[in-house]
Simulated scan of single mutants.
Amino acid sequence: MRITRRRAQVTLGLLWLLAGALQLQPFMFTTGFAHRIIAPAGDQQPAVVAGPVHWAARLIATAPLPLDLLFAATQLLLGAALVLAHSARRVRLALGASIAWALAVWWLGEGLGGLTSAHALMLTGGPGAVVLYAVVALALWPARPTASGGLPGDAAVRTEPADGLRTGWLIRSWVVLWVGAAVLQALPGNSALQAVAGSADSAPAWLRPAGAHTVSALAAGGTAVTVALVAAQALIGLAALRPRLRPPAAGAAVALSLVFWVLGQSLGGLSTGQATDPNAAPLYVLLALLLAATAPRAARATTGVPAGRAAAVARPVAPAHRSG
């Protein structure tokens, strides 16, 4: 069963509700939220990114209680609006507010996901979980469904609409995210071994053995592991350009995202009491489900006729011979 646009909107709303609930954890009402969560996002970043992030951290540190309540309330309202909206107008308002809030948090709270430092990895949640909320929201913006989604190659196959999804935006953002992740992974100093090792240190106790075994395996693999990750991410991204390859690309993306969530993101740190969201993997899974929904399904040429008999029905019949 394909995910529908409405179900995806509700799922996005539920993720916002989870983020809002996490913002109500006791740690978030202390100055530790500003100094240990926000401020580090600006470290080792250019001044144009670091300056606004450190300004936001200082502001939050002056009044952590009321500001954190404001953050939590905003995200809870966004989630409730998306879950409960029953008209296109209300959905647009909720999605628009979601995009604006996500981009503001991505800039001031996540330091653009560390992209300007060139050390952001999909393995550890790059390019930042919150910007993916905006990417998903734009894909779910109410629009007229089209047969092909406007991409080269789609028009050659008669398809059923993907429930009004903005297929063009979804495919292009998918390619940018996954091919961009491959490029970042290939840069010098972006070691999967170091990323997994760092994640294992903050993982729950029951997850640390898996992280330790993975670190040992990565150490033995060396460069081959990095090459494999680069190739896998690039292929998953580029496969979306071919309509028939979107379902397998989506399946591979879900599998790899879940591996990243466990080994590189420690399940979003949900058990630490300091997580602000479940990290990027759940958003990548949602994007993968949306991608699979854009794969073309051949439309039957004859309504009400089984597919196996369609060709026979469509075949022209020679006129009967009339004698005399």
Rank of each mutant, 00 (worst) to 15 (best):
I3Y: 11
R6A: 05
R7N: 15
V10D: 08
G13Q: 00
G13L: 00
W16D: 00
Q23Y: 06
T30F: 03
T31M: 07
F33S: 09
A34T: 06
I38Y: 00
Q44R: 12
A47E: 12
V48D: 04
V49T: 01
H54G: 13
A57H: 01
A57N: 04
R58F: 10
L59I: 15
I60P: 05
A63K: 03
D68R: 05
D68K: 04
L70H: 05
L70P: 05
A73Y: 04
L76N: 09
L76S: 02
L76M: 10
L78I: 01
G79W: 03
L82V: 08
L82A: 03
V83F: 01
A88C: 06
R89K: 12
G96I: 07
V105G: 01
L108I: 05
E110A: 03
G111M: 04
G111V: 02
L112H: 12
G114F: 02
L115M: 14
T116I: 08
A129Y: 06
L132Q: 06
Y133G: 04
V135L: 15
V136W: 07
T146V: 14
T146W: 11
S148K: 00
S148I: 06
L151G: 08
L151R: 06
P152L: 15
G153L: 13
A155Y: 00
A156Y: 12
V157L: 14
T159F: 01
T159P: 09
E160H: 15
G164F: 03
T167W: 04
W169V: 14
I171N: 00
I171H: 09
S173P: 08
V175S: 03
V176I: 15
V176Y: 08
L177V: 15
W178H: 15
A181Q: 11
A181T: 14
L184R: 10
L184M: 15
N190L: 05
A195S: 03
V196Y: 04
D201K: 14
S202F: 13
P204C: 07
A205Q: 01
P209H: 13
H213G: 12
T214R: 05
G222R: 08
V227G: 08
V227M: 14
A231S: 09
L235G: 13
L238V: 13
A239R: 01
R242C: 10
R244S: 13
L245S: 08
R246W: 06
A255D: 04
S257Q: 02
S257W: 05
F260V: 08
W261F: 05
W261I: 04
V262H: 03
S266I: 07
D277Q: 02
D277N: 11
A288K: 04
L289P: 02
A293D: 04
A301Q: 12
A301F: 10
T302W: 13
T303W: 10
A314I: 08
V317R: 13
S323Q: 14
G324T: 15
